[in-house]
Design a protein around this nucleic acid. Structure first.
Lengths: 265, 265
DNA sequence: TTCGGGAATATTGGATGCAAAATCTGATGA
DNA sequence: TCATCAGATTTTGCATCCAATATTCCCGAA
């Protein structure tokens, strides 16, 4: 048989694992280096420097940089290389708005089409997980990590559940913006009460949206998710400003890239 | 002064033009080759073949491919290269849904924040342009091209006008899906009347959304844009199916990648 | 004939080399 | 002191080369 048009497997034929290369790891590592501020925002980063940091030659480094450019973390000027993009708090808030709109749409779609068993199970699992955390009287680091995980699970269950691949792609685009991900939660350590209140409220939002979906109230569900995002945005802004005091940031979220006010150009 | 942290200009120092390289052109050319179906959907495309088609070596070809992968036009499997992604009509419809949601959000933001003069001017200009086309009794090719342009102008004016960069980024992500762009219009040549009716209706939607924005009716404006997208999606589906008869597709839109039903995996 | 299995070939992933263009340096002159 | 400009140096963009892996081909056995 001639070799053409074959649609191959996405998994490694032997191990069954998804195959991957240095490049994939390199891209992820570079993403982390950028998000963590190792390469400072608004600073030029050279190919040589990236290659050295990644332990590879310039070729894969260059491809990884091109990838991060498309993701919006780097900015390229032809023949003058890349610099790390910085974000203002307003940009982050805008991104969270958009995320809320997309999640609202996902909720609406679920309500209109009805909740499939598998999707319902995923949502319920995330709800159950966050429920146990909210019930606790005190939150240690493990609790906070578990919270971000269950939060992430919930939001992705919603978006995945919609079954709309374009929605999913747009969502992924938006949550790549530093602090815009549902994974990025800023816990105000100084004010534990406030922090717990925020978590409880978030959990209630999740429960309410699932309820609205079950009752097939699409626009209500969408509204809840939009508001949920707005609150999340407000919380982040407030807690971000209290970082000077003390705050705990969980997850790979790119705080280092956020400046408020922005650096002067 | 040490070399660090300098934020350079985005324009070429001498010409004032934005600098660019082979890579930039190559990426654009490859995008066109893929969208036009020169590299057939679901077929593997090798680096060598791309390099040859682009008249460059494999290095820039690889980067261009990585970029198109980020955009969603290619799919990569590590160590096994890239293949051209194909889309089903349902995926296209989903993407247009998402576009409508984002445009609706943009309209809502404009209504809530009030229409700035510059944004209003851009919207009005696009409206005026499409008005003259809709008035015509017959549509030639130039008219159709002008229509796609004014349509594109209107939609981008809306999204840009919102001033939300994340919204704009998500929008750009979505309209890269073949046929999902407001630029991609399928004119049903066989049924000119239908085609003209669709255009007229679209123009009226545009006018109505601007009116709603002016009256600060945010959710109304959002609703109009969502419905507008739904209609656009329906029209495309209908007209796409009539391509077998005769249809005119204007713009770089990737019809070649759309399969309905999808090829078997 | 059909189904392995292994050699032959093709392709990807990554490193390196080189020319073009940018940046930096340092001296010169207002 | 500060601006300017030519030469030195760095960096990007691209081509090419090599190793590792995947795919194809071919032959023998069931």
């Amino acid at each position: 048989m001639r070799y053409e048009g074959r649609v191959w497997q996405d998994l490694h034929p032997k191990t069954g694992q998804p195959a991957s290369t240095n490049l994939d790891h390199a891209t992820q590592r570079l993403r982390e280096l950028v998000l963590s501020g190792t390469f400072a925002p608004d600073r030029k980063i050279g190919e040589e420097a990236v290659a050295r940091a990644l332990g590879l030659s310039r070729t894969p480094a260059r491809i990884a940089m091109a990838t991060l450019e498309r993701e919006g973390l780097l900015v390229r000027t032809p023949r003058r290389g890349y610099r790390v993009r910085s974000f203002t708090l307003d940009e982050v808030a805008d991104a969270i708005d958009v995320r809320g709109e997309l999640e609202g749409m996902a909720a609406r779609l679920l309500a209109e089409r009805g909740l499939e068993a598998a999707v319902a199970a995923r949502l319920e699992a995330a709800l159950a997980q966050s429920e146990t955390i909210v019930e606790r009287s005190a939150l240690d680091v493990a609790d906070r990590l578990a919270w971000t995980q269950s939060n992430l699970d919930f939001h992705f269950a919603l978006v995945d559940g919609s079954g709309n691949t374009a929605l999913r792609a747009a969502f992924e685009q938006v949550v790549r913006i530093p602090l815009a991900s549902p994974r990025a939660i800023i816990f105000a350590v100084a004010t534990t009460d406030r922090s717990r209140g925020q978590l409880r409220r978030a959990h209630e939002d999740h429960a309410r949206v699932v309820d609205a979906i079950r009752k097939r109230r699409g626009s209500r569900a969408a509204e809840i998710m939009r508001d949920h995002a707005l609150r999340s945005s407000d919380n982040k802004r407030r807690n971000f400003h209290s970082i000077g005091g003390e705050a705990l940031l969980v997850g790979q979220s790119g705080t280092a890239l956020v400046r408020d006010p922005p650096l002067a150009a």
